[in-house]
Every structure is written in C-alpha cells, then in structure tokens.
C-alpha cells in the first residue's frame, strides 16, 4: 500500500480528491438550504456540452466546461427567479438539452465513448499536473468564498425577502452560489465525474444534518464527511485494484462510500431525536379547572318542571341551560 502512495499520479489524485471533498459540500449546503439539491446535477449535465465543445473546437475541455457551466447555472438561476413555467420544468429542459448537446457534439468531434465516460464518471488516475493545479486553485477559491461570505450566503438562502430588506443584494448572492456550483462541477469532473458530482455536494450535507442542530456544525461536519468520503473512496478503489486486481472506478466508489455514511448516520439521527424528545420535560400546563360556578345572578331554581331538560349524571341531575349543563352544587350551580 505504501508503494501505491508513493506513486506520482496517486498523490495527485489524493490531493484532488481531498480538495473536491472539502469544497463540494461547502457549496452544496447552500443549495440544500434553498431546496435546490438537484441544481448541481443540472449544471453537471450542461457541463457535458461544455466539455464536448472544447474537444470539437480544439480548446481545453476544462476551460470550455467552466464557461458553459457558468452560463447554464446563471440561466437556471434566472429562470428560477422569474418563476415562469415552473422552476423544475426549466431545470429539466436544461438537463436534457445539456446531455443531448454534449453527446451530439462529442460525436461530431469524432471522440470515442471512453473519453465521454471519463468526464461523466471521473478519471482521477489520469489527471495531469496541469489538471491538478487548475482543480486546486478553483477549489481553494471556492472554499474560501463559501466560508468567508458564509453569513451573507446563509441569510440569503434562509430567507431571501428578509435578506433583501436587510440591504443584501439577493440576486448577486444567488448568482454567486450558482457560479460557485458551476465551478465546483467542473473541478470535480476529474474526481467523481459530471454525472456524480451532485452527490458529493448533497450527500455529505444530508448525512451531517442527521445529527447536527446548527448550520455551522452542519457545514463543518459536511466538509469533513465529504473529504473523508473522497479520500477514503479513492484509497478503497486503489487498494481493490492493487490487492485483488478488481477494477473499481474511483468516482462511483467515492459516491457509494458517502451514501454508506448516510445509511449509517440515518438511524443514529433518528435515535438522537427520539432521545431528545423523551428527555424533554413536559411543559407545565394547568389542568382543567374542576369547579366553575355559573355566572352571578342565576336566580332560577332548576327543578323537575322548570322547563330545562334534565339529564341524569352519575349521582346528580344536570339541567341543560342555554346550550350548556348546570349541575347543582350547594347553593349555586356549576357549569359542566
């Protein structure tokens, strides 16, 4: 195993996985907060067109992917804000347009299916030093922005109307989240691939929030879980191919490891919530008053022939009076 870690490409892959695992949930948490968990997936589909465009025009696929992904993310954000024709329908249109356009352009560029599969499901082990530099710079910038602008991004994601009245430029911050998501998609392309990148943005957040109560703790736990899943998944896949000669692609291994974390954490969260509820004291609620005398001035004396319906009740007789029952109690009547 240590020989494996000494390999150049393996070290590059580990660093890329670590940075992706840290940055993807840090952006994804704002998408989950706004209930846009699938937005990363939509951007990933659109980015396929970007990659294909790069191959077709002879440019760097990563460069064109980042541009097309940002345009796609901004379009999704614009359509969502306008709210025309339903945000989810607009997202679906972009999904299909992106993936169909990508596959078509890739065919026109004369690329084979193996190359397409690399960008769809990741190719950590074929990363060049240039790819790594690019991914490292982008993920560090993304992580810094997501953390330093945290209070603002959090307020906008929590309640856009309130944030607007607090003087925050809601549109700019929403656009920033969309652009950060687009950038994350492209640098995570090598790690888990365009089709699985959304998992790394969403699953660690979903796992963390099973046991956390605050946004800050969710952020810390999600980035930790994301980094562990990315590094752990990569090591697992490398170990499987090293020791047993099994071809476990790193991208899916990382995502499945993250999902396994969720499956483990889910019952733990349920048990913790149940325990909190059981330990919480019941609120002090005054019991119903036992003795409610009728209002003053009840001069009327109920009797067998007073005209009020008499209802036998346990050891006494109630009289139905204006829609409620009067029970004799000493000198006066009680409301029943």
């Amino acid at each position: 195993m240590s020989e494996l870690l000494a390999l150049d490409f393996m070290q590059r892959a580990l660093l890329a996985a670590l940075l992706t695992g840290l940055a993807a949930p840090a952006v994804g948490i704002y998408l989950v907060q706004r209930r846009l968990a699938l937005m990363g997936d939509g951007i990933g589909h659109v980015a396929v067109t970007g990659v294909a465009l790069g191959w077709l025009t002879g440019n760097s696929p990563t460069g064109t992917a980042v541009i097309v992904a940002i345009v796609g993310a901004a379009t999704i954000e614009f359509v969502r804000e306008r709210g025309h024709a339903g945000g989810d329908v607009a997202l679906a249109l972009l999904f299909y347009g992106g993936i169909a356009g990508g596959v078509l352009l890739m065919g026109l560029a004369g690329q084979n299916a193996a190359k397409l599969q690399q960008s769809l499901f990741g190719s950590l082990l074929t990363m060049s030093p240039a790819d790594l530099r690019y991914a490292a710079v982008l993920s560090v910038v993304t992580l810094l922005l997501a953390l330093c602008l945290g209070p603002q991004l959090y307020a906008v994601a929590l309640d856009a109307e309130f944030a607007s009245v607090a003087g925050l430029n809601v549109r700019a911050y929403n656009l920033l989240v969309a652009v950060l998501a687009a950038v994350t998609v492209t640098f995570a392309m090598h790690t888990v691939g365009l089709l699985l990148v959304s998992a790394l943005m969403v699953v660690p957040v979903a796992t963390a929030q099973q046991v956390t109560r605050s946004f800050r703790m969710t952020m810390v736990a999600a980035t930790g879980l994301g980094a562990s899943a990315a590094v752990g998944g990569l090591m697992l896949s490398a170990w499987l191919s090293w020791e047993f000669d099994l071809q476990a692609p790193p991208g899916p291994t990382i995502v499945l490891l993250a999902l396994a974390g969720f499956v483990v954490m889910w019952p733990v969260g349920g048990w913790l919530r149940l325990r909190t509820r059981r330990l919480a004291p019941f609120p002090a609620v005054p019991g119903p008053p036992e003795h409610v005398p009728t209002g003053m001035g009840h001069a009327h004396q109920h009797g067998p022939d007073c005209g009020h319906l008499a209802v036998p009740h346990e050891d006494h007789v109630d009289y139905v009076h204006d829609g409620h029952r009067h029970a004799p109690h000493g000198e006066h009547y009680d409301e029943h």
């Binding site: 907060q33 209070p151 959090y154 994601a157 946004f215």
Partner: peptide, 16 residues
C-alpha cells in the same frame, strides 16, 4: 430551511 439552523444563527442573520 433545508438545513438545520440554531436560534442563535437565525437571529444572528438579522444583524447582517
């Protein structure tokens, strides 16, 4: 929202 938040955090966003 979609992510847990503490009372402190929600009230704190009013200070922005």
């Amino acid at each position: 929202g979609g992510v847990p938040a503490s009372v402190q955090e929600v009230v704190g966003s009013g200070r922005l």
